[in-house]
Every structure is written in structure tokens, then in C-alpha cells.
């Protein structure tokens, strides 16, 4: 079961967020389309989530055993808590794709990779009308304002792709 999906950009801002709230109730016919997209209420949660992943990632980089000339990144793949599991993927451009799920399945990295390579690239990167940088100010450092992905093709394709995994 998938609880939520997040994209963070290189400025540490959340540029896309999707949360499913009624996914636990399979009898509800509205379950699949429930939840919120880019909700303002989830802004604070997004900051906490990103802060947690960012700080954990910085300590795992320190724990990395790689030799300096053969640099292998030691990025976080998943974080499990007592209640849910967070799957992460970082792209070379500094984007973070994050999926929060339950414990039934252990490895969502191929799902995240598919979302990046087949949905994000196709509908956001290859889209001429989509901004190159989602921050309002090109010199964006911390929280001066950010646009969100509101591309309906992206949202619909993502929805269709993740729908089969919701329950």
C-alpha cells in the first residue's frame, strides 16, 4: 500500500506531493481517487520529511567507505519506522523522489526509477511550457517561494501508474 509520494528539488523545496488518505479502506469506491495533491497542509510535513532524509543522508555520506578517487555515493535507499517505510531515490540533478509505503514490499526503487525516467522526464522535463527551475527566484536559497508541478498529464499518468499498487 502506498501512502504518499513526494518530489523535492535541488533547493530542498517540495515541488510535488500526493497523499492518499482512504487507501486503507478498500470497500470505498472513492478510495483510489482520495487524498490531496500539493496540499498546503502538508507543507510542514514535507519540510520535516526532507529535513530527516537530508540529515540522515549527510551522516551516511560520512559513514561511506568509498575511496576518494573511486567515489561511490552512499545514498539512502529506504528508511523504516515502526509504522511505515520511506523509499528514496536521488537523481544526479539533485532531485529527490520519495515514496511512503507500508511493509508489504521491500523494494520500490524500480518504481521510483520508472516514475523518474518514464513519467517525470516525459511530462515535466520534455515539456517546453514547464519551468526549468521550480523556484520563483533563480537565486533561491531557502523557502523564498516555489512553484509546484500542476501538469495534468503528469498527474494523470502518475495516478494511473501508482493505482495498481495502492492496495
Amino acid at each position: 500500500m502506498i501512502y504518499s509520494f513526494w518530489i523535492f528539488d535541488k533547493h530542498c523545496n517540495c515541488i510535488f506531493e500526493r497523499e492518499w488518505t482512504l487507501g486503507s479502506n478498500t470497500n470505498n469506491p472513492n478510495a483510489l481517487s482520495s487524498g490531496t495533491i500539493n496540499s498546503k497542509q502538508n507543507d510542514e510535513i514535507g519540510k520535516l520529511l526532507y529535513g530527516m532524509i537530508f540529515s540522515l543522508n549527510s551522516i551516511t555520506q560520512k559513514l561511506s567507505t568509498s575511496i576518494s578517487d573511486n567515489q561511490i555515493n552512499n545514498n539512502i535507499r529506504s528508511i523504516s519506522t515502526g509504522k511505515f517505510r520511506i523509499h528514496t531515490m536521488q537523481t544526479a540533478t539533485g532531485l529527490w523522489f520519495i515514496l511512503i509505503t507500508d511493509f508489504k514490499q521491500q523494494n520500490y526503487s524500480q518504481v521510483l526509477h520508472y516514475i523518474y525516467s518514464h513519467i517525470y522526464i516525459k511530462h515535466v522535463v520534455h515539456n517546453f511550457l514547464s519551468p526549468y527551475d521550480f523556484a520563483l527566484n533563480p537565486k533561491e536559497q531557502r523557502g523564498q517561494g516555489v512553484k509546484k508541478i500542476n501538469n495534468r498529464h503528469f498527474i494523470n499518468t502518475l495516478e494511473a501508474f501508482l493505482q495498481s499498487m495502492l492496495n
Partner: peptide, 12 residues
């Protein structure tokens, strides 16, 4: 019950 239990990275 709600805290961190496991952290998986590329190396450990």
C-alpha cells in the same frame, strides 16, 4: 512503535 527502525543505504 513509531521511531526509526532500519536505515538502508547503498553500502550498509
Amino acid at each position: 512503535k513509531s521511531g526509526l527502525k532500519q536505515l538502508s543505504t547503498d553500502q550498509f
